[in-house]
């Protein structure tokens, strides 16, 4: 009992330390400027103000940018879940010649520095846009496409473990019962890997939501298609140190991810465990 209590205390202490920077971020966003710049910082404030949030939300077109970001992130989450599920099934339930090669390629894909790829990708997107409308430069489609490409390798790699954890007997039994391949995939396998999908979708969501490299590279002249992080960069001015504004902008950027996390948390914890029984 004492050991349990000690463990509890340690866990809570670690939690406090871990969450403290987040608390400090929100707190500083709520502090009036005078208190932020005081040389005597205090871990509370008696005069909370929404001024910093007001100026961050006052970035003209905030709502629009927020929607753009959300659209891109959700589209990437959904598409990446579907595509990585199919690919993961192919890579776990089948043995074929280039299987290992493909797996290693997925790893390699994650090793390339993103900045290095942004140049060739720019031309790819530009040329693609000339052939297929809707995915060229200055479109949200281009962001979805690129973010999808960047989240897929990791999603497939993770999801493989989840698919492998599902006993093959289930599918065999279904086949005996005369179920079609389609049914097996969508009615049997898909629901079973749902927790795993929750886990991988967290990653896809983060990749898509936090991106500003591609947003600022691809969205050139169409300001109305800007995404939120790229718009909030205004506040991260190295030379002005407007800490209140930076903290408010940071809070606004972090919140949606946090909400998405809480949304999938249960599935996340049970889901990640599925990757065990490879």
């Amino acid at each position: 009992m004492i050991r349990r209590r000690l463990a509890d205390t340690v866990a809570i202490l670690v939690a406090v330390v871990t969450v403290f920077p987040i608390y400090w971020m929100v707190l500083s966003a709520l502090k009036p400027t005078g208190e932020i710049q005081s040389a005597d910082p205090r871990p509370w404030t008696l005069n909370p103000t929404l001024d910093h949030f007001r100026s961050a939300l006052g970035v003209s077109g905030f709502g629009r940018y927020f929607l753009n970001s959300l659209t891109v992130a959700l589209a990437v989450v959904v598409l990446s879940a579907l595509l990585s599920f199919l690919a993961a099934v192919a890579l776990t339930r089948f043995r074929f010649r280039s299987r290992t090669t493909i797996l290693v390629m997925f790893l390699v894909a994650q090793m390339v520095p993103v900045e290095a790829l942004s140049i060739p990708l720019f031309f790819q997107i530009r040329d693609l846009g000339r052939a297929v409308p809707g995915v060229g430069l200055n479109t949200l489609g281009s962001l979805v496409l690129v973010q999808l490409a960047f989240s897929l390798p990791f999603a497939i790699w993770m999801l493989r473990g989840f698919v492998a954890a599902i006993p093959a007997e289930l599918e065999e039994a279904a086949t005996v019962d005369g179920a079609s391949r389609f049914t097996i995939l969508w009615r049997i396998l898909f629901p079973l890997v749902a927790p795993g999908l929750a886990a991988t979708s967290v990653f896809s969501f983060i990749i898509a939501w936090n991106d500003f490299l591609f947003a600022k590279t691809f969205i050139i002249s169409a300001t109305e298609r800007q995404t939120l992080p790229a718009a909030l960069l205004v506040f991260f001015k190295p030379d002005e140190n407007d800490w209140g504004g930076i903290m408010a902008a940071s809070t606004l950027m972090t919140l949606p991810v946090l909400i998405f996390f809480i949304f999938v948390r249960r599935r996340l914890v049970s889901g990640l465990g599925g990757a065990v029984k490879d």
Partner: peptide, 14 residues
Amino acid sequence: ATETRSEKYKGALN
């Protein structure tokens, strides 16, 4: 935005 302007210029060139 100051932070993204060089990307915008490059985009406009390319």
